[in-house]
Design a protein around this nucleic acid. Structure first.
Lengths: 217, 217
DNA sequence: ATTGTTGTAGAACTTATGTTCGTTTTATGC
DNA sequence: GCATAAAACGAACATAAGTTCTACAACAAT
């Protein structure tokens, strides 16, 4: 798919990359012209079109400096903007992602993490922990939990669980046992609790817990 | 230097950041206006000027989309490879970074995070928590703590502390009080402990705690 | 030679986009 | 309450910047 490039287009992407690195925004066609010793804007457009056809860049027509370096955004693939869609607190139902809260760009708050932290999983959203009800799970007020949207988890996985009867949200290790469900706190010093299977509603798999200290922004 | 911001400019940088993330190029003043529910371009410029005065962004006047997010700019690499230089456990001295453990490339293990998690701080290294001695600090076995290499912390900051007499490592909120040092666990249910000032050795500031679930545990 | 394709030029045009400025509304101090 | 500053508005303006078009040279295939 991606074709070999002759020297001129090659020179141009190079220039664009360096420009973005140094300036924080993409160059104009005329910037490229002067930067690559090209005397006409149309020549630049000509080559830009080639670059776009071959998948090196993405153009956003009619938009000033609307050049996006594709490899650069592939580079971005390592990073994830995770929407923080709500809070998780003892007595409140656990928010679940909907199509509109889903979009990181539309979300009021986002946290940026690497795929390292999400273990490469897709469909990750985040919740902010409110209150001290989950200290038994070693989760503190203000922590951020990265969640994967699933309705069931395997034994031993940590899940966000809604206990219908108690009307309570909690984060616990989940074990389906004969006729019962065992919920084990992350803190191994704590005793597990046993509940009826139809009393538990798995709202998501806990992937990561993040606690930040120091001044916020 | 960097001043606190009121809501509107805050909202604007947020928008700019997300825009750049998603589109690969900065927004126009009008993009910002519509994205932040501002009805006049001049209001945007007004706030942009504030942001620039306070060092959050850099403007390039007369240039289309010439907005550069300072924290995200040139010298700022989004991703950070943090070296995991050792373990932190109750009875073992806390490892401190040296010139050779320092280099992420040379380190045996690294964790990749975004600057978001390190709050833009420099000189970050990581330690893996071994054992259950720090559950009182809401830190569990296997957690990773991101540390900043400092020899002193301000009151209220969470520090990695080596208690010389007890030969014990711990993570606690640090408060210097008259003639004493108060060490407060992150778990507010727990009582603080008081120690002699010359018994404490601050080995670093705790920036972030990360706990991952699922595979690899 | 003839024709067609590719790369380069430069001017003209249109739209996108930053700036200015006078005015109006909303806080803030006295 | 009044005076003053901070913040918001909207229109008008100037120019930055993408696009289009015609022309022309270099070169390959016919």
């Amino acid at each position: 798919m991606v074709k070999e490039l002759s020297s001129k287009p090659q020179q141009i992407i190079n220039f664009i990359c360096r420009f973005v690195e140094n300036r924080g925004y993409p160059p104009t066609i005329r910037d490229i012209a002067s930067g690559c010793a090209i005397s006409s804007t149309s020549v630049v457009k000509y080559n830009l079109d080639i670059l776009e056809r071959n998948g090196y860049i993405r153009r956003h027509g009619e938009i000033a400096r609307g050049i996006e370096i594709v490899t650069h955004s592939a580079h971005f693939k390592y990073r994830l903007l995770v929407p923080v869609i709500g809070q998780i607190a003892a007595g409140k139902p656990i928010p679940v992602p909907t199509s509109d809260t889903w979009d990181a760009a539309a979300s009021a708050e986002t946290i940026e993490v690497t795929r390292d932290l999400t273990r490469g999983r897709e469909g990750i959203y985040a919740l902010r922990v409110k209150g001290w009800s989950m200290v038994d799970a070693l989760v503190s007020d203000g922590d951020i939990v990265l969640m994967e949207y699933v309705n069931a988890v395997d034994n031993g996985e940590v899940a966000a669980i809604w206990l219908k009867a108690e009307r309570e949200a909690t984060l616990k290790k989940f074990y389906a046992e004969a006729g019962k469900v065992r919920l084990q706190p992350a803190n191994t010093r704590m005793k597990p609790i046993y509940v009826e299977p139809d009393n538990v509603e798995v709202q998501g798999r806990v992937v990561t817990v993040i606690r930040q200290f120091g001044s916020g922004r």
